[in-house]
């Protein structure tokens, strides 16, 4: 009887204990990372239901700014820091969490016509507007619908730096300029003549990657190519966070870097660090 009474007393005490305070982690930045961060946060919430996430897109640059300005706990970046930015990183961490590759993508009809690779020079020519029909590349006789991204996106900067030798280089002015990766993927799916560049995470059965042909050879944006460093458009994806931050934030980042977190990296379509 005594143990029953103790159990009931414990129950009563537990009933009156204040519930744990819910924490919200604000994450902002690169749209490239969003699919992964969403999956990671959902997985993390299953273990820590008291933690909530608010995730904004906005691009790598904006994500860095939000963290530096103290408006977000974690910034997502799909590119390296430039010199200017690196100067502001005192007290902050620029933490690689995954490896990504940017790959040229084309619509079903183009891919199905047999076009599966493109040389770096051709790609540059297409983006400069010097090539405007798929026929010139060995594809169907269709004008090329050229898709570009806004210049503040990490993906665009990485792509432009490699392909056009300048992160902010302009492209042919009849290109359709879009905001997010998802919109780019949508237009590739909807069209039968479009070309764009996308993160590995956005590839699917209607969004086809083209291998890149360089002087060194032909490289596909696969794990092997990326990991052995042969694929030219590989990049690392980063989280930015203050060195002094809340325990819940630190714990989430630890989760991202853990084996389980890295498994999700692959599920999201990226390549894990290890």
């Amino acid at each position: 009887m005594n143990s029953l009474i103790y159990a009931l007393l414990m129950l009563a005490v537990a009933a009156f204990m204040p519930r744990a305070q819910a924490e919200t982690i604000v994450i902002a930045g690169s749209t490239t990372l969003i699919p992964y961060i969403q999956q990671a946060s959902e997985a993390y919430r299953k273990m820590h239901p008291d933690v909530r996430f608010t995730i904004h897109a906005g691009g790598s640059t904006a994500g860095l700014g939000e963290v530096l300005g103290g408006h977000a706990h974690i910034g997502m970046m799909s590119r390296e820091l430039n010199e200017k930015e690196a100067a502001h990183m005192d007290g902050f961490r620029h933490l690689p969490v995954a490896v990504d590759a940017i790959t040229p993508v084309v619509s079903d009809e183009v891919f199905e016509s047999g076009l599966s690779r493109i040389s770096m020079l051709s790609l540059a020519a297409v983006y400069r507007g010097e090539i405007s029909n798929w026929r010139a590349l060995g594809g169907p006789d269709k004008p090329i619908l050229l898709i570009d991204r806004e210049t503040y996106h990490g993906t665009r900067q990485v792509f432009a730096r490699y392909v056009l030798n300048d992160a902010l280089a302009p492209v042919a002015n009849d290109a359709v300029v879009l905001e997010g990766n998802a919109d780019v993927a949508n237009i590739i799916r909807a069209s039968d003549q479009a070309i764009a560049y996308l993160s590995l995470a956005y590839l699917d059965e209607h969004v086809h990657a083209l291998a890149i042909e360089t002087e060194q050879g032909v490289f596909a944006a696969d794990e092997q190519g990326v990991k052995n460093g042969n694929y030219p458009l590989a990049r690392r994806l980063y989280l930015v966070l203050p060195k002094q931050t809340r325990p819940a934030v630190r714990d989430f980042v630890r989760f991202v870097l853990s084996g389980e977190g890295q498994k999700l990296v692959r599920e999201a379509g990226f390549i894990p660090l290890r």
Partner: peptide
């Protein structure tokens, strides 16, 4: 070419607003 132009015109508006075509 006309079709491409129209597609470009509509696409730059529609896809940016998350429509699919």
């Amino acid at each position: 070419q006309t079709r491409l132009d129209l597609r470009r015109l509509l696409a730059s508006s529609l896809f940016e607003h998350h429509y699919r075509g």
